[in-house]
Design a protein around this nucleic acid. Sequence first.
DNA 1: GTTCGTGCAAAGACTTTGCATTACT
DNA 2: AGTAATGCAAAGTCTTTGCACGAAC
Lengths: 149, 149
Amino acid sequence: MPSTTKRTEQYQYVQETLKRSGLKWTRPRCLISDVLFHSDRHLTVEEIFRALREEPPIAVATVYRTVRLFENLGFLAGVDLGDGMERFEWIHSARQHHHLLCTKCRSVTEVDADILNEPKETVFLDTGFQIDEREITFTGICKECKLKE
Amino acid sequence: MPSTTKRTEQYQYVQETLKRSGLKWTRPRCLISDVLFHSDRHLTVEEIFRALREEPPIAVATVYRTVRLFENLGFLAGVDLGDGMERFEWIHSARQHHHLLCTKCRSVTEVDADILNEPKETVFLDTGFQIDEREITFTGICKECKLKE
DNA sequence: GTTCGTGCAAAGACTTTGCATTACT
DNA sequence: AGTAATGCAAAGTCTTTGCACGAAC
């Protein structure tokens, strides 16, 4: 298990949350949280699995189970990029955001979540529906691809 | 093949579009477009298949192929309600809209697409990304479920 | 020593594909 | 007749599950 000083804080939080529920701090959980915590991209189960294929590798089934667990505990958010595979990203406390997925180059840009504040309010006033959206993926064309057209 | 007067218009449009590409107007395509055209809900492949199980039933594979074809031709829009199955709805020319999915009762409400006009503009001005979104599903709590809490 | 977690392989759910046959045009 | 579409079953993906062994508390 890695143990840089920077990592200590994150590990303690995860570890304590697990312990509080009678769950255990294991090698797979440590490594998987590590990969997700330090990735700025949104990883598929396959990608997490490949990132950890060395040493005694971790079973894919374990990656699935761990990712579901972390999701339920609120550490991870599932992201749908519309390619049939679920992706995961660590929820870093601050910075709520949405994603802009370019349909040409498949690049992903992040935008601040508050761009939806006004629509949320409109919807609530109109229909009484309270939108509670952690993450939305908007598709479209990014600046670069637009210029190349 | 059904042939009500009301249906004629739709059929002609679909049929002509197919013909223009050298494609054929067949019983499965007729029935599937019919089901989707007249449904106000968003159907999964399974649901379309079940709706047509009588008479000489249509193979599931054909439903998949037809739905993909219609999607590519722009007749259908794929909708993701986050339950792992793709759903489809007929694009009735007017009324672009988004969906509000209640996470408690699973009901789906529609809202006008223009609630996103402002955010789209903001995003474009800030990042140059041109959002081109036909359909977005927002999750949250509907009015009724909110009252029951 | 308990209890929970892991690895493995098998099974599930949804979707796609290959190929001979059938149906449009 | 000629080409495209269908049905069927097999194969593909991605994901979940059952169970015995191993690790954490």
